[in-house]
């Protein structure tokens, strides 16, 4: 944001630096490692009792996974899934945020949007797949449309609730200091809805990714991670199925924990500044 660089230089306050304690990095990551580790452990213990064609060992699947990095069918699948996500998710976010903002200003539109959302929410996103396959054909257009339908509404709802709940004092203060309508929107409504925008983006991401994989699995496309996993299932290739699950989970977790978390801390920087110190 713009408020960082110019300000810190002029400040002469000597704030006590908060140094991270030794081992705090380890402490921070331990819960994540424990979560991953316990899942893998349960899998491995079960694998001891089951034949390999029903449940392969954990190391075998990882070996297969690294081997598959040269398998064009698999990597192309990942690529096309990510491409669809890269189109569908931002469109859904922008679309949802715009609808939410408009609804925040217009009471009638808010009622309309809420009912629209409750109808769309009642329909599982993948039920749209056959409809759009007939309309748009197999492939990207269908899947991206399904992603948008599945993930715009958490964003729209989140932003709508935020604009409706904007602090009255914040608005009146701006009016007292001479703000016009546009300034109210850009200087109070927008920054005040930003936390909701971030929350909406996080929920929307989960929806987008799940509907993407599901849509690929039920036949919206002939390439992609979801498609790959279903196809491996049909030929009873358990290693391939597990490998797909691993990749699907990892991609989502990494994007969520790293990318969205980074975005959150950047946009809502003021919330993460420690009490009693500037930086």
């Amino acid at each position: 944001m713009s408020q960082t660089s110019s300000s810190s230089s002029s400040s002469s306050a000597s704030s006590p630096q908060v140094r991270p304690k030794a081992g705090s990095l380890w402490q921070k990551w331990l819960p994540y490692l424990a979560a991953v580790g316990s899942l893998l452990a349960i899998w491995q213990i079960a694998a001891f009792f089951l034949p390999a064609y029903l449940l392969p060992d954990v190391p075998d699947v990882f070996v297969r996974l690294f081997g598959s990095m040269n398998d064009a069918e698999f990597t192309d699948g990942i690529q096309s899934s990510l491409l669809r996500l890269a189109w569908g998710y931002p469109i859904a976010c922008l679309f949802g945020a715009a609808l939410g903002l408009i609804a925040g200003v217009s009471q009638a539109f808010a009622v309309y949007l809420r009912s629209l959302i409750s109808i769309l929410q009642a329909i599982p996103p993948i039920t749209w797949v056959p409809f759009f396959v007939i309309l748009l054909g197999f492939g990207n257009a269908t899947i991206i449309t399904v992603i948008v339908i599945a993930s715009f509404f958490p964003m729209a709802l989140s932003v709508l609730n935020a604009t409706e709940g904007v602090n009255r004092t914040h608005l009146e203060l701006a009016r007292v200091l001479g703000a016009n309508k546009l300034q109210l929107l850009t200087k109070v409504f927008a920054p005040e809805s930003l936390p909701a925008f971030v929350t909406g983006a996080q929920v929307a991401f989960g929806n987008a990714w799940r509907s993407l994989i599901a849509a690929e699995m039920v036949g919206g496309a002939a390439i992609g991670l979801g498609y790959y996993s279903r196809w491996r299932g049909e030929v009873a290739d358990m290693e391939g199925v597990l490998m797909s699950i691993l990749v699907i989970g990892t991609i989502a977790a990494v994007l969520d924990l790293v990318l969205l978390e980074w975005l959150k801390r950047r946009l809502l920087r003021y919330r993460y500044v420690k009490t009693g110190g500037a930086e």
Binding site: S10, L173, Y270, R271
Partner: peptide, 25 residues
Amino acid sequence: VLIFQEHALYPWRTVEKNVAFGLEL
């Protein structure tokens, strides 16, 4: 100008940006 009892500073603005708000407008 009205000075409110509380909740009156914008939490997303630093002190100087808050003070400058009216001038910025």
